[in-house]
């Protein structure tokens, strides 16, 4: 089994969100960077579990980004990837990122039976990369997967639908976007961290692809007016406010 896990660099979940350059750039000063949680906790860890069940499995990691993303790639290698590829360009748009990754998959001798992505990144919240990659490669795509099992050439996947889950069977090769339920987050152990230092991290230059979207400006949501506190002895008053003032009940 050959698995490719797409990993993205995102600000830490507790990072302060602010912008510079007339609100056109994310303010990176002092920000701690992490592997996008969906990529790490669910996509990568599920891949590692599959490798633990079948030790002939090979896990490659792919990242589209600048050299400052290498620490998070090393962390992913420490968790359990075998090799990593970094495509040296800024992923300004999911179409651009998907096209770059697809090019690597096409060129590679590895056929990558499974390509895992997180369900979305926590910065742009697009969730578009997996579907785009699948379409470029003409593969089935299962979005929002919560469980993933493999038997021979057939994957059994549970995916989220509105108000429930659906179980589907699909033949490899496939692209799957992963979310909570797939696996449990892990932390790298010392052996993994030591081993990651010498694992291959190949840097490749991008192919020419145009972005189809671009950020014009960022903004912050308006600050709330402030909470209206109601005494615990006046729960009726709270419900009255919700009914008459907010008109929500």
């Amino acid at each position: 089994m050959r698995i490719l896990v797409c990993i993205s660099k995102t600000p830490d979940t507790t990072a302060k969100i602010a912008f510079t350059d007339n609100n056109t750039k994310f303010a990176e000063a002092g920000v701690q960077w992490i592997i996008n949680p969906y990529d790490e906790w669910y996509a990568l860890v599920r891949a590692i579990e599959l490798k633990e069940a079948d030790t002939s499995t090979i896990i490659h990691l792919i990242n589209v980004g600048a050299a400052d993303g290498e620490p998070i790639i090393r962390k992913a290698l420490a968790l359990g990837g075998d090799e990593a590829i970094r495509i040296n360009t800024i992923p300004t748009d999911p179409y651009l990122a998907a096209s770059q990754i697809a090019e690597i998959v096409r060129q590679s001798a590895e056929k990558y039976d499974i390509i895992f992505t997180g369900k979305e990144t926590i910065d742009y919240n697009n969730g578009s990369l997996g579907g785009m990659l699948a379409e470029i490669l003409d593969r089935p795509y299962v979005a929002l997967a919560t469980h993933f099992q493999i038997a021979g050439n057939i994957a059994t996947v549970k995916r989220e639908i509105e108000g429930g889950e659906e179980t589907i069977e699909v033949s490899l090769p496939i692209v799957v976007s992963c979310q909570k339920g797939m696996a449990e987050a892990r932390i790298p152990n010392m052996r993994g961290i030591m081993a990651a230092r010498t694992k291959p991290l190949k840097v490749v230059e991008p192919v020419a692809v145009e972005s189809l979207t671009k950020v014009v400006e960022f903004g912050l949501p308006p600050v709330k007016a402030g909470v209206k506190l109601v005494s615990p002895d006046q729960v009726d008053e709270l419900i009255r406010l919700l009914h008459e003032e907010a008109r929500m009940i």
């Binding site: 999911p94 179409y95 578009s128 579907g131 379409e135 795509y141 929002l144 639908i161 189809l212 979207t213």
Partner: peptide, 23 residues
């Protein structure tokens, strides 16, 4: 941008070479 839209819109964007704003 529900579960169905998330599965289809990105694929269609590639086929039509259309820019997609999700969300």
């Amino acid at each position: 941008n529900n579960s169905t839209g998330k599965a289809i819109a990105p694929r269609l964007a590639v086929r039509l070479k259309a820019g997609l704003v999700a969300g």
